[in-house]
């Protein structure tokens, strides 16, 4: 059984690495890379959490068999 807190932590770790790789690919200066990491990891993790929330409520209410 998975724990939501652990899943959230794993999402944050993955978001950080994804953002680090993308920011380093796009930028070459330290300050720009650090700014890019914060922005991109926030956008990615919030998007995934948003999709998860939509999926959760959809499966719980809209798609729930009557």
């Amino acid at each position: 059984m998975t724990n939501p807190i652990v899943m959230l932590l794993l999402l944050l770790v993955f978001s950080f690495v994804l953002a680090a790789v993308l920011s380093c690919y796009r930028e070459d200066e330290k300050s720009a890379i650090i700014r890019g990491i914060f922005r991109r990891s926030l956008v990615f993790s919030v998007s995934v959490i948003g999709f998860a929330a939509v999926a959760y409520f959809t499966s719980g209410f809209v798609l729930f068999p009557a």
Partner: peptide
């Protein structure tokens, strides 16, 4: 419990390494 996440992480790390090489 987190086997799928583990697979995703290791495979993504490999593809990220290609981006790092590029």
């Amino acid at each position: 419990p987190y086997q799928d996440a583990g697979l995703l992480f290791t495979t993504s790390a490999g593809f990220f390494n290609v981006i790092v090489a590029l």
